[in-house]
Computed example of a mutant assay.
Amino acid sequence: MIELPGYAPVYSGKVRDLYAPLLADGEVDPDRLLLVASDRISAYDFILTTPIPDKGRVLTQLSLWWFDQLADLLPNHVLSTDVPDAVAGRAILVRRLDMLPVECVARAYLTGGGLGEYLATGAVSGIPLPDGLVDGSKLPEPIFTPSTKAPQGEHDEPIPFSRVVHDLGAERAAQARDLTIAILLRGNEIATERGILLADTKVEFGLDADGEIMLADEVLTPDSSRFWPADQWQPGRPQASFDKQYVRDWLTHESGWDKLSGEAPPPLPVQVVDQTRNRYVEAFERLTGTSF
């Protein structure tokens, strides 16, 4: 984390760093946080040693754009984009929230961990699916497939909806499920008009002081979602993508690294860094209709 005058470092995650604004008396602001998106990239629960230039700016600006598109569905945590010059463009001032202790995931297409679970059990997160689905199949309707929110360095694990009900209560669990699916549906309504399919997404929710649920962290970015070019979608094989799947594929198929070894992944070569940046920027430009 970099030093920011007037802010106290709070937490450094896989991609984002949190700072607390300092009040005039030097005390920490109890109501606000500065959320800074770095250029770090993670894969398979490892933070890679090679950053992706401009990634933090892409994630922040795309999230801000999506927050506007989703504003009628639920409020979000954004207070201001007036931030220190050192983090301009990749940071926002946000409300402090009591974060829900569940990773809220919705899937419109079958791939990744959901595909593996389906092939083994015929279901994902306890939800039975039709026979004969393959990698990239569109699901009859989007499904909510939550997971644990594991500490950094550990793996999130899929959980059934009953576990979410146990952890959050029936009403709050249903609210989180319905909002996650609504966000993915709205995202796909907008993205498909721009030639992109949103296969799945992960969102974060928190509660404000009045107990109102709010959208937090990031939303519908290449880090939290799988973005596929619609004109190349072909079920039965891995899909072309605008997200960090390109990095995952290089690590597992070309780098010689074994993700089960417990060893840290190798540095990314220049061409993988450049191609990853290009994919993030193209997703931003296609979706927003503006140049980065």
Rank of each mutant, 00 (worst) to 15 (best):
A120V: 04
A88T: 07
P151Y: 09
P266K: 08
S225P: 07
A86F: 01
T145H: 08
V105F: 10
D45G: 02
Q232F: 10
V94E: 09
V124D: 00
S291E: 14
R177Q: 13
W228I: 14
I2A: 15
L48T: 03
R279A: 06
L33E: 12
Q61S: 13
F67H: 14
A88C: 02
G56Q: 03
L73E: 01
R96K: 14
D178P: 12
D249A: 11
R172E: 10
T148A: 07
A170E: 11
A88F: 02
R226L: 07
P265A: 07
A106E: 14
A199S: 08
I190M: 05
V15G: 10
F284A: 05
F205M: 03
T276I: 06
S255G: 00
L185T: 15
I127C: 06
H155K: 08
A71W: 03
E282C: 08
F161V: 09
L35C: 13
E189R: 13
D243L: 02
E212H: 10
P229A: 11
D31Y: 14
D249G: 04
V247N: 02
P238I: 11
A182G: 07
G6P: 12
F46Q: 06
R286D: 06
L184E: 11
Y7E: 12
K259L: 11
Y7H: 13
N188P: 05
G187V: 05
D72M: 08
L129F: 00
I92P: 00
I92T: 05
V15E: 08
K149E: 12
L139I: 02
V272M: 13
V273P: 10
G13E: 11
L73A: 00
W257V: 12
D54G: 03
F161D: 04
D178A: 11
E189T: 12
V272Y: 12
L198R: 00
V102P: 01
D167P: 02
D82E: 15
L93E: 13
A209E: 08
Q61E: 15
N76H: 14
